[in-house]
Each structure stands twice: as C-alpha cells, then as structure tokens.
Simulated scan of single mutants.
Amino acid sequence: MADDDNKDVNEEETGGKSSKKLIIIVAIVVILAVGLAVGATLFFLKGDSSASDAAEVPVEEVKKPAIYFDIKPPFVVTFDVEGRQRYMQVFVSAQSRDQASLDALELHMPLIRNKLIMLFSSQDFQGLQTAEGKASLRLASLNLINEILEKEASGSSIEQVLFTNFVMQ
C-alpha cells in the first residue's frame, strides 16, 4: 500500500513537471510570435514612411494675397477728334503680391506718371471706345510700368494694372 502511495506521488510530480514545461514552452512561443509581429510591423512601416516622405517632397507654393496700390490723382488726357476737344479720365490701380514692388512703384511715381500720360495721350480716341482698345491700353500700361520698375528698381514688377474708372467724352 505504501508503494501505491509512492507511485501516485511520483506520477503527480512528473505530471506537474511536464505541465510546467509545456506552459513555459507555450509562453516562449507566444513571446517570440509577438516579437516577430512587432518587428515585422516596424520594418514595413519604416519602408512606407520613407516612400511617403519622398512622395511629399514637392510642396505646392502658396500664393500670397494680392496687394493694391491706387495711383492718384486720376489721369486726364485730351484728344483732338475731328476738330473737337475730347477728354479721357482714367483711375488706375496696380496689383502685386510683393510689397517691395509697390514701394518701388511709389518711389518712381513721377517717372511712371509721365510715361503713362504720354502713353494715354498717344492713343486713338475711336479705338479706346471698344473693349479690345481698353484691354490693349491696360496691357501696354502694365508693360510700361514693369519696364520702368525692372530698369529702376532692379527687377521689381507688378502683376496687373487695373482701370477702376474709365470715362471718355
């Protein structure tokens, strides 16, 4: 009977040892599996971030807001049309996205006003009554101002010349 009790104790001890070994082996396998999963995830995410960084390099340039400068006083030009005196009054504004260009415009205003008056007075009165004639005068004014600014203010330029009021009679 004593032998039967020793057998039961020995079986319990060996059974307990094998179940402890099984738990340890399972725990090690689980830890290794989690470690491999984390390592693989980091490896693939690292590869994706470098590819997305390369794709994000070309950044679209943000446009600055437009700044306007009113050229005052308005321009008044006389025309002689078929022996009659005709007048044109033009309110002009300049648009730029660079304050330095508008500062240069203001600095060279006497030269710009002189050239614009000469340009306006050399126009054909009948041609200015059409939309195409006004658009052409606007473009010629822009080119004239940018030419002066490029020469006098080392490369400054404006984006548009705007006629805010245009009266002919």
Score class of each variant (00 low, 15 high):
Ala66Trp: 02
Ala51Ser: 12
Glu82Cys: 00
Ala94Glu: 08
Gly83His: 04
Asp48Leu: 08
Pro58Val: 14
Asp70Trp: 01
Ala37Lys: 11
Val77Thr: 15
Ala54Leu: 11
Pro58Trp: 11
Arg97Ala: 02
Val34Thr: 13
Ala37Met: 12
Ala66Val: 12
Val59Asn: 02
Ala54Asp: 09
Val81His: 07
Pro65Asp: 11
Asp103Lys: 14
Ser96Val: 03
Asp98Ile: 02
Pro73Val: 04
Pro65Ala: 10
Val57Asp: 06
Ser93Ile: 02
Gln89Ile: 11
Gln85Thr: 14
Pro58Asp: 12
Ser52Leu: 14
Thr78Gln: 15
Gly83Glu: 05
Gly83Asp: 06
Pro73His: 10
Lys64Asn: 08
Ala51Met: 08
Val62Met: 05
Leu105Thr: 07
Met88Asp: 03
Ser49Thr: 13
Leu36Glu: 01
Ala66Phe: 04
Ala33Ile: 13
Ala37Arg: 12
Ser52Gly: 01
Leu105Tyr: 09
Arg97Lys: 08
Val59Asp: 01
Arg84Phe: 13
Ser96Gln: 05
Phe91Asp: 15
Ala100Asn: 14
Gln95Gly: 00
Gln99Tyr: 12
Phe79Ile: 11
Thr41Trp: 11
Val34Ile: 15
Ala66Met: 04
Phe69Ile: 00
Asp70Cys: 00
Phe75Asn: 02
Leu36Met: 08
Ser96Ile: 04
Thr78Leu: 15
Val76Lys: 08
Ile67Arg: 04
Phe44Ser: 03
Ala55Gln: 10
Leu107Tyr: 15
Pro65Ser: 10
Ala33Arg: 07
Ser96Asp: 11
Ile67Glu: 05
Val81Tyr: 09
Gln89His: 00
Phe91Gly: 10
Arg86Phe: 03
Ala94Asp: 04
Ser52Ile: 15
Phe79His: 15
Arg84Lys: 14
Phe44Trp: 14
Val62His: 00
Val57Ala: 13
Leu102Ser: 04
Pro65Thr: 12
Phe75Met: 01
Leu36Cys: 08
Gln85Tyr: 08
Ala94Arg: 06
Ala51Cys: 00
Ala104Asp: 10
Ala94Gln: 06
Ala33Val: 14
Met88Leu: 15
Val92Gly: 05
Lys72Met: 09
Val38Pro: 03
Ala37Asp: 04
Val76Thr: 14
Ser52Asp: 08
Val90Pro: 02
Glu60Gly: 03
Val90His: 02
Val92Gln: 04
Gln95His: 00
Gly35Trp: 05
Val34Arg: 06
Met88Trp: 01
Asp48Asn: 07
Val90Gln: 02
Pro73Leu: 09
Ser52Val: 15
Lys72Tyr: 03
Ala51Phe: 04
Gln99His: 07
Leu102Tyr: 06
Pro73Cys: 11
Ile71Pro: 01
Phe44Cys: 00
Arg84Val: 10
